[in-house]
Write a protein that binds this DNA or RNA. Sequence first.
RNA 1: GCCCAGAUAGCUCAGUCGGUAGAGCAUUUCACUCGUAAUGAAAAGGUCGAGAGUUCGAUUCUCUCUCUGGGCUCCA
Length: 670
Amino acid sequence: MLGAMAEIHITLPDGSQRSLPEASTATDLAMSIGRGLAKAAVAAEVNGAEVDLGTPLADGETVAIITGSSDEGRHVLRHSTSHVMAQAVTQLFPGAKFSIGPAIADGFYYDFELPDHKTFTEDDLVAVEARMREIIAADQPFVRSEMSIDDALQLFADQPYKCEIIERVRALGDVVADPDDDEVALDAGEVATGGTVSVYRNTPEFVDMCRGPHVPSTGRLGVFKLMKVAGAYWRGNEKGPMLQRIYGTAWESKAALDEHLHRLEEAEKRDHRKLAVELDLLSFPQELGGGLAVWHPKGGIVRRQMEDYSRHRHETGGYQFVFTPHLANGKLFETSGHLQWYKDGMYPPMEMDNGTYYMKPMNCPMHCLIFRSRQRSYRELPLRLFELGTVYRYERAGTLHGLMRIRGFTQDDSHIYCTEEQLQDEIASLLDFVLSVLRAFGFTEFTANLSTRDPKKSVGSDEIWDKATDALREGLHRHGLPYKIKAGDAAFYGPKIDIDVKDAIGRSWQLSTIQCDFNLPERFDLEYVGADNARHQPIMLHRALFGSIERFMGVLIEHFAGAFPAWLAPVQVRILPVASAHEEYAHSTAAVLRASGFRVDVVDANDQLGKRIRAAKIEKLPYVLVVGDDDVAAKTFGVNPRGGEVERGVPVDVFAARLAEEVAAGTVLA
RNA sequence: GCCCAGAUAGCUCAGUCGGUAGAGCAUUUCACUCGUAAUGAAAAGGUCGAGAGUUCGAUUCUCUCUCUGGGCUCCA
């Protein structure tokens, strides 16, 4: 049978043997070890000499697969580095228990539990790094072996977390059959399959259960840096033990590491919390309580521009504006179900003579009341209600994060009531609308997530779920939006699309959401009279475009690094008189520009010109205009644009016309 | 909510082995009036996040709380 086929025997760097069909290549070898390694492979080393992956292998050769700077190569590198870290930690902290240590974007982590629940200090990280360098210098081979589940349990007898993983492998059986299924593999502790467990050993003292692959030896690792310690729940279970997680980053070269660290620095410079203070946009006064912001005048201008633009678009987009109060009798939230399901996320009740009141966590119940305020006809549908509605949610303390996760915020919230027949078109036009508005704010790249039904917890018929999900999917196809399906991730009341935007440095932010809701129309007993003169239940769509004004502001700050385009900038133009003699001209031309609707200020000549220019640059103003003797005589400006070349002698009206054009072009008014 | 680390002037930070604090920038005033990224001088500015405990004495040590940062979990 198979035995009839000629075989060759290859020695791997760890000393183990592998049999392959005759004429196999290095790629075939990598495939036989694991698809992960195959993807990572860039070349092979045969008897010490580098060869192409397609080179046929001969019997008796020693072959190492070389991984490169591809994503897969880095994955192997990072995962191997995490093993070395675990080895260093267990050597430096005898009795340390370790759980899992996967590669992640840009790096790796490993979770530990130290004896007596000790925690890692900064100094500990330095010591661990030093020991890791020793291990790397020692160039220890990673030796793979397989063993039965029972043998593995014995080997890891003093490692309770490993034992739990091994037991889980036993329980899962062939569910972990695909070693490239990261989700399952990570869940099961990245181990092998088929009733056996694979382990990698690189010193007599250190062995870790792992499905691999690894670099041939520790000397093949690149450069790494331990970044931080954090707490993490074992298996992500909030009720489970809290482990110590060490995060590290690892790259194939020092240049790649430096580039990564540089990217982190750049991202830090854009941090909206830092820029919000520097640019005097808004603040989070301690006296106010966590997660609550006040908007300063300059932030207020940006916000007003955002809101005005949003209102303009909604007005022309067929929406009707409504206003609703910030708090409501608890009965409303009983009807909507919020009190039943989300009480923990709401601010606590206010007991009043005539009932219990709550801050509203959402606007939808109130919009439903508006829909229900009188009998509705199918001729009114789709009915699109829009509100810049401020809501309050008691987000858990540890989750607050600047403007991105906040307790009081304003949604650009719409609820659309339509018939089943209108659903498809409504979703398609909604997507048009959403993308068009986002483009006006300088975003050009979008991706989407489609969250589908979790049959275990959902309301509404199969038919309506299918119909709505198809409508969402069809809408995404029509726009050619790349999307991922998040199976079972929908809320219980209906499927949804979330839209992510990519910012100027390539980070993704989830902003817009379009959600179908089959629940609230039922709970609020919403109906309309159809053409058939019978009563029907409308379908409800929830839709936020910015998501929240606060969060959107945070994303805009980071996207533009605080350098807002002219139409959004709090101060568009600053005029600097060279000397006191030019102040009168500066103020009078400022008044002219203001009369044209521009936001202009003047800083008199109490400081040197260079200093005032520097201040304006730090404020990231779009235009600095310098006026001196020549300008007063010729009615001109010296124009110093943000990020551009200085231009002397620009006539006042020419500058005004240019700026007007720039501001108008900033907003794509549909 | 959980783990870890923090909180000193508007901002960035130093400092006090327990005896109520200092710099730079910013602010105010004075001088300088300058053509494209930091002129000089002076002044003012702090219950050292809040409360309690230990102590003759606490910004410093201990505890609790609040807020912040990094994660975990959560995000209707």
